[in-house]
Design a protein around this nucleic acid. Structure first.
Ligand SMILES: [Mn+2]
Ligand SMILES: [Mn+2]
Ligand SMILES: [Zn+2]
Ligand SMILES: [Zn+2]
Lengths: 146, 146
DNA sequence: GTTAGACTTAGAACAATTCTAAGCCTATAA
DNA sequence: TTATAGGCTTAGAATTGTTCTAAGTCTAAC
């Protein structure tokens, strides 16, 4: 069963964490509250800023620890689109991404199921881990009418 | 025209660089010699080590400058599969990758042309830059016969 | 109440990359 | 020939994102 948060009610979040074998500390609940308010793509720094929007209460180390834990428990998934910055994606359903190379924004693409069909066989003695499709896009040059 | 190196003959490399508006300095020819000996996936550090296999003659700064220049001129392409490490791919034909999460090895997959067909329309006012497909694989668990 | 283990934290350490600013090389112009 | 200018290379410093360390805090069970 694929649990999803309906509201930002702390109890629901607490539940979600417990369901994934994570003891719901106040810091973890805060981080989860940000990630699961809606499907989103945040980097660690963005989570850190949001989680401390009022007063600073969660350290950067804890943000990283928590994100790492959520990844390990499958609550969140990492997306690599650029060197030196990881995005944490609270949509864990199989899907792909548009990446706007100008703004750095990620947008979801529903999984196609098609790419897989046409894949060559995996190398010997290996099994599939995941398929990531990143469609890099850029803002269009102003085209002059011909 | 899509020029490719047949041998490691310096003259051919010099030609290739000139054809891409790059003045062929000794350092650039060395770096190109490593990248284009055969299609390969190197990170900057690997290029640095290889280029200085005998005696140290090319600085790390120059390796990065050169790789950046080759990317800008389309001689080489970057692949992002992990945070904090860029691979430089001397195969610039459209293609995709297997990524062995255990060994960190990249293997080419001939472009399918399929993923594209099933893509949703691009967001408004954007144009396609590139499509990267990364198939993450892992060494198979020893399966016991049932 | 104690205690053990899990959790959090500030700051140091780290790794990949980029920047800086000074020297070098080479092609052309005097 | 020698000067000059631009592009190129370089060592090392700086930056960035992330992980590590070691000490303190919390909490749940005894
Ligand atoms: Mn997503
Ligand atoms: Mn490749
Ligand atoms: Zn779930
Ligand atoms: Zn070419």
């Amino acid at each position: 069963m694929d649990m999803k948060i309906q509201s930002t009610v702390p109890e629901a979040i607490t539940e979600l964490l417990r369901a994934h074998q994570i003891t719901p500390t106040s810091q973890r609940v805060k981080v989860a509250g940000i990630l699961f308010a809606e499907p989103a793509h945040f980097c660690a720094e963005q989570v850190y800023v949001r989680v401390n929007a009022d007063d600073a209460e969660v350290s950067k180390a804890t943000v990283y620890n928590t994100l790492g834990l959520f990844v390990a428990r499958g609550l969140v998934r990492q997306v690599f689109v650029e060197p030196g910055k990881v995005f944490y994606d609270s949509n864990t359903k199989p899907h792909h991404h548009f990446y706007d190379t100008g703004s750095g924004e990620l947008t979801d693409i529903d999984a196609l199921g098609v790419a897989l069909h046409e894949l060559p066989p995996l190398p010997a003695d290996t099994e599939l881990d995941s398929v990531d499709v990143i469609v890099r896009i850029k803002r269009q040059f102003k085209t002059r009418r011909v």
